[in-house]
Design a protein around this nucleic acid. Sequence first.
DNA 1: TGGCCTCGAGTTCA
DNA 2: CTCGAGGCCA
Length: 687
Amino acid sequence: MSQGIAERARLLREQINHHNYRYYVLDNPEIPDAEYDRLYRELEALEAAHPQLVTPDSPTRRVGGKPLESFAPVAHRVPMLSIHTETDIEASGALNFDARVRRELKLKDSDPPIEYACELKFDGLAINLRYEQGVLALAATRGDGETGEDVTQNVRTIRCIPLRLDTPSPPPVLEVRGEVFIPRPDFERYNEKQRESGGTPLVNPRNGAAGSIRQLDPAIAAQRPLSFYAYGIGETAGWETPASHSGLLDALRELGLPVSGERAVVQGPQGLAAFHDDIGRRRDSLPFDIDGVVYKVNSLALQAKLGFVSREPRWAVAHKFPPEEELTVVEAIEVQVGRTGALTPVARLKPVFVGGVTVSNATLHNQDEIDRLDVREGDSVVVRRAGDVIPEVVAVVKDRRPQPEPARFQILQRYPACPVCGSHVMRQPGEAAIRCSGGLYCPAQRKQALLHFASRRAMDIEGLGEKLVDQLVDLGLVRTPAELYKLGVAKVANLERMAEKSAANLLAAIEKSKRTTLARFIFALGIRNVGETTAKDLARHFGSLDALLAADADTLMQVPDVGPVVAESIAQFFAEPHNREVVEQLRAGGVSWPETAPQRKPLGALAGKTFVLTGTLPNMTRDEAKDRIEAAGGKVAGSVSKKTDYLVAGAEAGSKLLKAQELGIAILDEEALLGLLRPEAQGKLDF
DNA sequence: TGGCCTCGAGTTCA
DNA sequence: CTCGAGGCCA
C-alpha cells in the first residue's frame, strides 16, 4: 500500500468529520449532500480495498453525528440502524437488490417472486418515539445509532404526532420510528413570513427540520412547520407485531400515527422498478422532498432470516434518485442583451450533472439577485434543478471562495458599455433591469427584434431561426424587418448552409408570411408592453392600422386593458419616425391583412366567456383550440381563477385541473369543447 | 389604496 | 414556468 492512499484516507476522514459537524451539529452545511455522499463513498471504497486503513474513529464506523452536549443522551434499546444505499441510480438498482435477497435466501429461479413493501425515503431527520402505556414518554434523535439525544420537548410540538395512542388497550411499550421533515409548501410559506418580518429564512427543508428539532427552546421549534411520517418500530413489549411490514404500517396508522400514503406492496424486481419509476416521475409534484425510495422485504419472518451485514439490514435498501442539487464553479459571469436591451447576467458554469441533465448556464436575473446571493466569479455554488424547472443558483459556498477574494460583481462597473454595440448602459429609476441605450442600432437588439418578428405567434416565418438571423445581421444583409422582404436569391446564397433548396424554402416562407392578420402584425413590431393579447385587443378595437397610427395616448386608453403605461409605450413607438418608416416599408413590401370595421365588443357564440386550456387534447393542438375559441369570440387565459368559465382539460392535465375542481369550474374535454363551438350550440351556453 | 388577475418578458436543454 | 408589474375594481 502506498503512502498516498493512507494520506488520502486520512484527508477524507478529516473532511467528512468536518462536514458532519457542520451538518449535524451546526445545521449549517457547506456543501450539497451529493458532494458529501461522494466523499463518503470514496472513503468507504478505500477502506473496503484496504481494510488495514480502517480506524475505530472513522466516520464510516458510525451512523450519524455526535449528540449535542446540551441535550440529555438517550441509549436506544434497539439500535437505530441505517439502510444501505444502492449505488446504482438506474432502475437496475432494484434488480441488484432482489438478486442479492434471493441469493441470500438460496432461492432458485423457479421459486415465486418475493413480496416487497416500497416506501419513500424522506429527506429529513430520523426520530424514535417511545410510547409507554400509550403515552408519548420519550423522543430521541438517531445520534450515532446507539445513543441519541432527548428531544421530547421539541417533538411534542409537532402537531401530527399523537401524544397518546388511539387505542383503549395500549401496549406497555411501543417505539415508533420515522422521519421528521418540513413539507415544501409549508417551508415556502414559513420563509416568506420570515423574509417579511426580517427574520432569517431556512436554507432548505432538510436543514430546517434538523435545526428545529435541535432547538434548545421548544417555543422556537413550535413555530416551525414540522411534520412526521412513521416507517418502522424499535423496542416493543406486549404488542402483537403484525407478520408483514405493510401490516405493521397499517397497524401504526390504526394507532393514530401518520403514515405516508405513498407506499405499495409489490411482487418481485419488476414491481420494485415500477415503483421507483412511478415515484421518480411524480417526485417534483410531491409536497415534500425525498431523495429516493426504500424497498423492504415485506415478510418479517423473511427479514429475520436475512438478518444484518455489519450494521445494515440485508432485507432493506435505499434506492436514490439523481441529485437535484449539485456543487459547481462559476467560471465567469457574462451578460446577454435581450430584445428590450436588458442586460441579463448569466453564470457560465463548469458543466455539472443535476436533475437528470448537464447544466452549464444559469441566469442570475439582475443585479439584485447577484447582490442577494453575493455571487462572484470563481465562486463555488449550489445549483438546483428540480424536474422541468429551469436551473438556478441557490447559494454560494463562501468557505470555498478563491483567495484572494474576487471583487463583488457589479454589472454596471464591469459593463459600463453594452458588450455588443458599445452604447452606454443605464438603470432607469424604479426598474430592476439595466438596459443598453443603443436601441435597434445594437446588433443584439436588432437580432432579437427580427427573431421576435419572425416567431411563430408573430409573422410565423418558418425556418428563420437564431443561426440565420445572426448571419443576416452580421453580414449587414438585413437591418430592419422590412428588409427581410427585399431578400433575393443572390443575397441568400451568401449564407452558410444555404444552397438552392434551403434558400428557396426560406424565400417561400418569407413570401408566405406576407399574408397575415393585423393582430399578428402589431405583435410582430415588438412594441414594449404589447404582447399577443394586447395586440389582439388593439387590432379588434381599431380594425385598421391607420386608425391605430392615428390614435394618441388618450384614445389608446379607451381600449380595454390598456392603461397609461401601455398607451405611452405605443404612442412613443409610433412617434419615432424610424418606426413609422419601417411600417410603411413593410406595407409597401407586400405585407397585408384583411382590415375590418372597428369592433368594440367581441361577437360570437362564446363572447364574454373565459377559457383555460391544460393538458394534451386528442385531436387538436393547444394553439388550434385557442384559435377556434377566439374565433368564436371567447377569451383564452393562462391560469385558472374565479373568473374562468370553462377549463378544457386533455391528457396529463396538471395543477390547473386541481384548481378548477376546487373552484367548482366547469370542466370540458375536447368533445364537449367542439360541442360548444358547433353553431347549433349557440344560445345553449347558459344552460 | 389594496388586492386580485392577467399579461409580458426572460430562460435551459435535448 | 415564474416573476414583476400593469390594470381594474371594491
